[in-house]
Simulated assay, not measured.
Amino acid sequence: MKRQEETLMGWNIIWLFFKLFGLPITFPWLVYHFYNIMQQRRKITALRSKVVMITGASSGLGEALAHTFYRCGCRIILVARREEELERVKNDLINTHQTVPITHPPIVLPLDLTDINNMKDEVSKAIMVHGRIDILINNAGISFRGEVINTNVDVDIKIMLTNYFSQVALSKIVLPFMMEQQSGHIVGISSVQGRIAIPFRSAYAASKHALQAWYDTTRAELFDKNIKFTIVNPGYIKTSLSLNALTGNGKIYGLMDKATENGYQPGYVAECVLKSVLKQEKEVTIAPFTSKAAIVIRTLFPSLFFWIMQKRARKLAKNK
């Protein structure tokens, strides 16, 4: 039903385009549009049997990413701390996509990514099952809710360890494999808050800003190694991220924010990530107009952005 609605909407757009611009404009646009579709299908076919490692794969966006890439015929390595949930995702993949050609049973890798000093051997063994690693999607992360002045430094460190250092450490384990095979793609799931910082998200925004800088630098340094780097900046996604967020004293936040509740579906964001990989985009922002406008304002009119954030902080503080 949903696919039929999308098809109908597509034809409505084409008809509107025709009425506005006429055949001389609409026909070339249609040719270009269908050419892009064919190119995308060809690239999806090329993904078959590619080895894709996904962190944070036990739920939310990570689980949606696993379904999206497994459906393309990829060989999936599922990484997260909860082995039982990883097994559930593995079984769901096998049972849901039985008709997908050239599928391979997913590999389950229970791993605490914050245990940086002890993960190299386990990750290397998982990669050697298929003998290569083509795509790494660094998705695992944790959110934060709290005031700067009341946040323990231990919380800042834990957020940075989970969202930044673990991604960097895992990428550095994977990179030698990619360099040896002379190809690869590393995707970092950041956030709009990696581009702009908002009140009461200091530790989270700081970790995502750091991630953005690392990807930009690494992409530049390894430009001639045939390894692609994509940073993805989603807006709010309807997952349990806010439920599991840490507060200033290290406790679990335990609430579903309204913005999170009204956020994008994980499946939609996963499809956008797939498209960014197919197009080998360096950066993609998946967010509403207001979030994208805020990024532009922060870049071009920083004083205005600071004033807006001050107003927002005051309003949020009053509503607590």
Rank of each mutant, 00 (worst) to 15 (best):
L241P: 01
G62L: 06
G194R: 10
E63K: 14
Q182M: 08
K320F: 13
A205F: 01
F229E: 01
M1T: 11
N138R: 02
Q193I: 05
W29A: 12
V89D: 08
I14F: 13
I44N: 01
E271I: 01
R48F: 05
K320G: 15
F223K: 14
W307P: 00
L8S: 12
R88M: 12
G250N: 02
A46Y: 02
N249D: 15
R195V: 04
T290E: 13
I173T: 09
E87A: 09
F305N: 13
A245Y: 05
S143E: 12
N319W: 03
K125C: 05
E85L: 14
H67K: 12
M53C: 07
I127G: 04
F165Y: 14
Q40T: 13
I159H: 06
V277F: 06
G194N: 08
F305V: 07
A126I: 01
N249H: 05
G267R: 03
N244M: 07
T247Q: 14
T99M: 10
P24V: 05
I173N: 09
G141Y: 06
I149P: 00
R195I: 06
G248N: 08
I133G: 04
F144V: 02
V31S: 05
R81V: 05
E271W: 08
R41E: 15
I25W: 13
I107Q: 12
K292P: 08
M38N: 11
I227A: 01
N262I: 02
C272V: 08
L61A: 03
L8F: 11
V89R: 09
N138Y: 05
